[in-house]
Amino acid sequence: MKKPVISGDTITIPSSMEYLTDVDVFIEGILRGYGADESVIADIAISVSELVINAISHGNEALEDKMVDVSISRNGKNVTITITDQGCGFDPGEIADPLADENLLKEAGRGIFIVRSLMDKVEIDSVDDGTVITITKSLNN
């Protein structure tokens, strides 16, 4: 059975929710090394968890032989994290508005909205053989 693998500033996990904590520990540890404050760490950790959950459940359809890569880097005061899955891609334009009255009490569907709210920049590159989402946040926020 595959396990999480850490290589430099990247963690690669099989598509199972049981590895969410591994990703969180990895990302938060690096952010503390960067000297980020707790509020910024929480915003990034929340966003990464949202995107990894989407990559596992929607992108890779929870197939454990498909992997999710999470890479982190720092450029000056900005932290950039890239989440890559091996799914079939999706159309960001088809995500329903979670603030609409008819969606307000739905149990799911807020992930990308929350990420866009917490991060300074979100880039989604979704094609037929996978989705790459890159998020950027200033350490000074």
């Binding site: 929480a42 950790a45 929340i46 968890s49 949202e50 959950i53 009490l105 739905k106 149990e107 799911a108 569907g109 807020r110 992930g111 929350i114």
Partner: peptide, 17 residues
């Protein structure tokens, strides 16, 4: 609770409804 994501919010909504 240090933080929660949309999964946590979904659990609160499920319990509420």
């Amino acid at each position: 609770v240090d933080w929660m994501n949309s999964t946590g919010l979904g659990i609160l909504i499920s319990g509420y409804t």
